[in-house]
């Protein structure tokens, strides 16, 4: 008996993996049911829905970007100081003094752009495949809110490096929000904590970026994934209406006799 086989027989291994390697139907079911990550899936999926050309995997890629951003974001948080001029100095330090600093920052930046694009394309895929149709209406609404949160996450993160690019992009962006009819000055105060972007704006946006918006995103993602299952799983063509089928055949038959 090999060492590995012996290890698989120990109480420790069996306490972690409840089933054998999933190469039999029974274990292919159990692996999905027993794993916290895999159990987001149903045990079986429609064959037509696993084609890459149907979904392009965009929903999954959005989640992947979110995970990459969480990991790299935590790495950046170890070093980042939400203060003026500490924020900019920590960016500089990240580039020179921190192991994997530039890599983590680059990855965070590119994955952030990637997530906005992935979420946007995912929404477009869902639209063009008609997957928002009943009974999936409300999950589409949640998806629209998730798109908004994704953009806000990216936008709040944009200010944090506190360089010229960040400062003036946020200046332009928040000037748009300032002119909200009726409640403009309140929006400005809520967003900037003052009349202009300053150190307190940075703290506010940092808090939004690292805790409030990610938590909101996680909560809504949980509902989004849950509802995919509850609304009947991934969308597939609905059966043709029988009457319509009949009509179509009649119309065809009529057409043939006419000719």
């Amino acid at each position: 008996m090999s060492l590995w086989a012996r290890f698989k027989n120990t109480t420790l291994y069996k306490s972690i993996y409840r089933n054998e390697y999933p190469d039999t139907p029974r274990n292919q079911v159990l692996v999905i049911l027993n794993s916290v990550v895999l159990h987001l899936h149903p045990v079986k999926v429609p064959r037509r829905a696993v084609r890459v050309s149907y979904t392009w995997g965009l929903g999954g890629l959005s989640l992947l970007m979110f995970l990459m951003l969480t990991v790299t974001g935590v790495w950046l948080m170890f070093y980042y100081v939400p203060a003026v001029p500490g924020a900019y100095e920590s960016m500089k330090a990240l580039d020179t003094d921190v192991i994997f600093g530039p890599f983590a920052r680059n990855l965070h930046r590119w994955a952030a752009h990637g997530m906005v694009i992935a979420v946007w394309l995912h929404m477009t895929r869902v639209f063009y495949t008609g997957s928002y149709k009943p009974p999936r209406e409300f999950n589409w609404v949640i998806g629209v809110v998730l798109f908004l949160i994704t953009v806000l996450l990216s936008f709040t993160g944009y200010l944090l490096p506190w360089d010229q690019l960040a400062y003036w992009a946020i200046q332009v962006g928040s000037n748009m929000a300032k002119v909200t009819p009726v409640i403009g000055s309140y929006v400005q105060m809520a967003l900037l904590d003052g009349y202009d972007i300053g150190p307190s704006t940075l703290v506010r946006w940092y808090t939004l970026h690292v805790i409030l918006l990610p938590l909101a995103c996680i909560a809504l993602m949980a509902v989004h994934f849950w509802r995919i299952r509850k609304d009947g799983g991934i969308s597939t063509p609905i059966p043709y209406d029988e009457d319509e089928e009949e009509q179509e055949e009649l119309a065809l038959a009529a057409g043939e006799t006419n000719e």
């Binding site: 999933p22 139907p25 292919q28 079911v29 692996v31 999905i32 895999l38 899936h41 149903p42 045990v43 079986k44 999926v45 429609p46 064959r47 037509r48 696993v50 890459v52 995997g57 597939t236 063509p237 609905i238 059966p239 043709y240 209406d241 029988e242 089928e245």
Partner: peptide, 21 residues
């Protein structure tokens, strides 16, 4: 694809068909 009334979707196991993708 046109799905006939009462036609069942062809299903495959999530492991490995979806998990591998």
């Amino acid at each position: 694809p046109k799905v006939k009334p009462r036609q069942k979707e062809e299903m495959v196991y999530t492991w490995p068909f979806l998990v591998s993708i």
